[in-house]
């Protein structure tokens, strides 16, 4: 029992390191990709080609004054960033890195991965509610509405993969993809997963809750310094987790001809990450009513149709 406890602790620390590294890389990549897509260079000064930029940013944020406005509800204000970061870390637990190197192969691993962002929804609402600020409240409400609306098509899109593999365990889904990727078998499911993940991560074109011109800062208006950094870390760690999950479940992460599995896994994960960054810096922002309409009137019917089509394909092919 103590061995299991020790290995769990080692895994937890390892996953935390993975999350932190992915956040640093993600922020740096974001700025470089944004720069190059906008015909400029991005960060170039801190280190060769600006590699140490995220480190510099972190140091700066650490030294900022920890400001807690007077009228906020202190417990909610302090707890919300932690609650936002926790699901990103938790969801890293069921992703099969480099077949079958998975921290914990839960029987219902896929469902666990889809359920954990629900805690993030609570974090957003608590942040909006406890900052004594109308913009925060509105931003929190809008963001929470968007997040819960997109949970359903996301779950339905992954459900089609579960149907194809016949199991909710991520390792089993990975093993069933040795011949053909599931993204090829359910292309609509894969497209749905990408779209809903972009929405779940509050990225453009779904980033109205964070848009400066609309809502100042949305639910994280009153946060500064390290607390705000927690929200950013939560977003980028969740970004990595969702892309890694998509690579494992849709693209057969780790299966590949020549290179070792971990290299294939990283390539596929970062392919999805770069695609989502490409979308972010290309497409303009949706209005909130367009966001809700898209989720409820378009994506849910398409997801259900996709389930039906997948079932037919499974039966007759």
């Amino acid at each position: 029992m103590m061995v299991t406890l020790a290995t769990s602790v080692v895994w937890a620390v390892g996953l935390f390191v993975v999350a932190a590294l992915s956040v640093m890389l993600g922020v740096y990549l974001e700025r470089k990709v944004a720069g190059h897509m906008q015909a400029r260079l991005g960060p170039m000064r801190t280190g060769p080609h600006g590699i140490a930029q995220t480190l510099a940013d972190t140091v700066k944020l650490l030294f900022k004054e920890d400001l807690i406005p007077g009228k906020v509800d202190r417990l909610g204000f302090i707890v919300a960033p932690l609650l936002a970061f926790a699901p990103a870390l938790m969801s890293l637990m069921v992703i099969p890195y480099a077949r079958p190197f998975v921290p914990r192969d839960l029987n219902a691993g896929v469902l666990y991965f889809l359920a954990v962002p629900a805690i993030g929804v609570i974090a957003v609402m608590v942040a909006g509610l406890s900052s004594a600020n109308n913009y925060s409240l509105l931003g929190g409400l809008r963001s929470a509405a968007q997040l819960i609306s997109y949970e359903i098509p996301r779950s339905l899109s992954v459900l089609s993969v579960v149907m194809l593999a016949g199991s909710l365990s991520t390792v089993t889904i990975l093993e069933r993809q040795t011949h053909v990727w599931f993204a090829v078998l359910t292309p609509i499911g894969f497209a749905l997963y990408i779209i809903t993940t972009i929405a779940e991560l509050n990225r453009t074109p779904f980033d109205l809750p964070e848009a400066e011109a609309e809502l100042v800062g949305g639910y994280h208006t009153e946060y500064s310094g390290l607390r705000w950094a927690f929200f950013m870390m939560a977003e980028y760690a969740g970004f990595f987790a969702a892309s890694a999950f998509g690579a494992a479940v849709f693209l057969g992460g780790g299966n590949g001809p020549l290179l070792p599995p971990i290299v294939w896994f990283v390539i596929k994960t970062y392919a999805i990450i770069l695609f989502m960054m490409w979308v972010k810096w290309t497409v303009p922002r949706f209005r909130i009513d367009q966001v809700m309409t898209l989720s409820r009137k378009v994506l849910i019917p398409v997801a259900l149709l996709n389930l039906a089509v997948t079932a037919v394909v499974m039966q007759y092919v």
Binding site: L106, A108, P117, A118, I119, I122
Partner: peptide
């Protein structure tokens, strides 16, 4: 997991 999904998330 259903408890987290429905109770915490709903």
């Amino acid at each position: 997991v259903a408890q987290i999904f429905v109770y915490v998330g709903g």
